[in-house]
Write a protein that binds this DNA or RNA. Structure first.
Lengths: 211, 211, 211, 211
DNA sequence: TATGAATGAGAATTCATTCAT
DNA sequence: GATGAATGAATTCTCATTCAT
């Protein structure tokens, strides 16, 4: 699994170490369950340093949330756009989806701790929920709307489905794959990711392709 | 939305009030973010009373987790079995799924605070994860395996899909519907649940029905 | 020196102990120099108890400031009014002033730690300054205005002085006596309070009596 | 109001900037309430620079206290001596006092922040108290003793008052004037300083002049 | 049984001080 | 000399837990 390159976030050395440590600790214990002492020790900095950079524990969480949303929306949405736009005419829907999902799954795989934090925060806090909606959900749907339009024009996707519905279905399916892989890894000892993705795409495509 | 009948949990009056208050507070703030003071005030009991009944805050959480898992597995899994077993021969796959999903969504809707807690805890804590796996996921898949067998026999479901895959797809889709309804309610102002469920079932069934 | 009776403040046992300890510690080290740990230890309570009663350290200070202003305005102003109003016709100005000042000095003597805190806070904080002005200074001047009126009618006080001026002069003189006694006690080994007060009254009265 | 000329303190540029900033911040928040960060920012130097010059925060305070005491004793006591000694024979007591007090009030006015710090420290700390006593109070009383002697010789001051008593009375009165002007400025909108001083001198002189 | 005042261990936060640059 | 990032000891504050009533 490729590591996410945190240096692109434009943080100073210590800041980056705190950031990484925070992701690790917060993802394991949640915001309130984590202590700044533990984060500091993990980051190899003094506890006071955290507060120099992030003012308060909540401030640390806020900064992290923003950066994480940026990471996901940038990596997931924008790079998807590029991939789709760069689509050489001959690739079919399944091939395209496969590449897309496979990358996305790999990405979330590598960012799973961050994803956990974001999910928990989305569930618990209104403000994070709003930010996630605006920068990830809305953007994702908008992207799918465009994608869908192109695909409808090529007559490879049914016309009677809203982009929200398709997005939700695809998102729900890959979320489940990731959840299973990450939360219940012992249940997937005998299947491999590629086959799983192909099967899911088969199901989805049968569902969304015209008859 | 019908209220869940907590009296069937076999708790004393105060215990039940603490239980309900805990669900409300924990679902809003998470386990570590909630204080026993707030729960006590909400339940209308003294803080000490919580400890009389549940020994520790963690003990309260553990009891709650167990009861909540029981609630979900009982209501979701067992009652599904009954519904499916009681299936009069003439109902087709889509009709059956629709009834099943519709009920399940309504149930989770009414138990959403509990579902939130369980989800967050599943994400954060190994032990809850295990319990959820054993009593909900595994049971759910087992149920689907049986269901699938019957359906394959009737030739209304493809033979080449594992029950895990189908379960995951159905579960992922309804999870997304519930998440959207509950977390981003402002996005569903113009769609109604029944239509949404029908659309999703259409997609899933096309995906899982034989060609 | 008679002790101030703190029980009249209507505080619970622990609250009163915290209050007394706070006066002692704050008067010795100032607000920021005092620690809640030290106050708690001095009061014989747990540190947490302070926060149960006063929410924050600042809250403790605020409550104390209010109570102390109440103590001073009540004891100094109101009881002065009574004394003056109860003045049997035959007492002359000097006799009256002597009794008044003597009591006031004794009072401030016994409340000196509180007076120190109030003085420092008055110097450092706008809000305390305002409260002290409204409840002590203004009240004091109003009282003197009445007193002066009576005395002018009896022709024992010059007519050409504002009550502010007289108040300031008297207050300034007794403040200096108290300051000397309390801050530089080694300088008064050979004088006694009664003589000092009589001398000061002599000076003041010559100054404010008509020629 | 004339500014005090800090350059005469013989400090280097940065040192002087730290000194001025310290007076401002300490006078607003007290010693413990002020932070070296704020002082540094205010002085336009790095936090470390403060410690280069003054070793510790307490060292800064000590140096400041000494310089401030020097400022006051020099400016208030020594220059008073000169004024009195330079007294051309024809000036009467009231004229002399008026000039003296007027200057002193103006001086304290311009040095009020320093005076606040010194007052608070005198109240709170034994060592400052001692230094203030030795260099300001004792000196002031000694000065008054001489002054009184001359005046008694001229038969313009009563013989039966100790210099301490007179000093205290004069000091108390001007302290109150300054306190009122600085702490409760809204109460003096309609009086002017010169008249106030003259009135106070009238009261004091009646009090201390022989009958 | 139920209470809630009191506790104190533990967490967040502050800030004087150091030191490599 | 001067800087300011980094430190960590000290301080404020929180909250699960206890226990006398």
């Amino acid at each position: 699994m490729e590591e996410f390159d945190y240096s692109q976030l434009g943080l100073s050395d210590k800041e980056e170490r705190i950031f990484k440590a925070s992701i690790e600790i917060f993802s394991k214990k949640g915001f309130d369950g984590a202590t700044t002492y533990e984060i500091a020790r993990h980051a190899g900095v003094a506890e006071g340093t955290i507060f120099k950079y992030f003012k308060t524990k909540k401030g640390l969480m806020k900064t992290m949330t923003i950066k994480m949303i940026g990471m996901f929306s940038g990596k997931m949405i924008l790079s998807s756009v590029e991939k789709i736009l760069a689509n050489p005419e001959d690739k079919n829907l399944r091939q395209l989806l496969k590449e897309l999902l496979f990358d996305r799954i790999k990405l979330v795989d590598s960012l799973f701790p961050a994803a956990k934090i974001l999910l928990v925060e989305t569930i618990l806090h209104e403000d994070v929920r709003e930010a996630v909606y605006t920068h990830i959900v809305k953007e994702g749907i908008a992207l799918f709307a465009k994608f869908q339009k192109t695909m409808i024009a090529k007559k490879v996707i049914r016309e009677d489905l809203s982009p929200e519905t398709i997005f939700r279905s695809i998102f729900g399916n890959i979320a489940m794959i990731i959840a299973q892989r990450k939360l219940f890894p012992e249940t997937i000892r005998f299947t491999n990711l590629e086959t799983e993705v192909e099967t899911i795409i088969d199901i989805i495509c049968r569902g969304i392709e015209p008859e």
